[in-house]
Simulated scan of single mutants.
Amino acid sequence: MFNLRDGNNPDLRRRVLTGEISPEKLITLSAEEMASDKRKQENNQIKEKALFDCERGLAAKASTDQFKCGRCGQRKCTYYQMQTRSADEPMTTYVTCVNCDNHWKFC
């Protein structure tokens, strides 16, 4: 009931009124399924960041100006390397921009 009345979630109300979601199905939806499209996108970003942080663990970081951030164009970055594939292939380098916190990786 609260989710249907929420002003920040007009998508759910619209889907119920148009019949896209039946009332019978509405009562079985999880909180994630009832979230607005904007909230779903925010949740996915949070999950991706948590996964990225989990993958890299507590690996040592080094600062460098060797990499250029594609988002802000700055060269202040930290990076670390991890062996993610077989031993005869090169290590994967994970880079984080100090300025805008943009993350990327390359092999």
Rank of each mutant, 00 (worst) to 15 (best):
C54M: 15
R5E: 11
G57D: 02
D6Y: 06
G7H: 08
A35K: 02
Q83H: 06
T93N: 01
E89S: 12
A31S: 14
R5C: 10
Y94M: 04
N44L: 15
T84C: 11
R5G: 06
M1K: 13
N3G: 12
E24H: 08
A60F: 09
F67K: 02
L29Y: 04
P10N: 06
K105A: 08
R15A: 15
E55L: 15
A50R: 14
C77E: 01
A60K: 14
N9G: 03
K105E: 07
T78A: 08
A60D: 12
V16D: 01
V16C: 06
K105G: 01
Q66P: 00
L29G: 02
E55P: 02
N8P: 02
S86P: 02
A50G: 07
S22M: 06
P90T: 07
D88I: 10
K49M: 11
N43C: 07
C72H: 01
Q66G: 04
R13I: 03
N43W: 09
S63H: 13
W104R: 00
I27Q: 12
R75D: 07
K68C: 10
V98G: 00
C100D: 07
L51G: 10
V95P: 01
K105S: 10
N44A: 15
L12M: 05
T78M: 08
L4Q: 03
N99G: 04
N102T: 11
R71L: 10
F106V: 02
R75L: 02
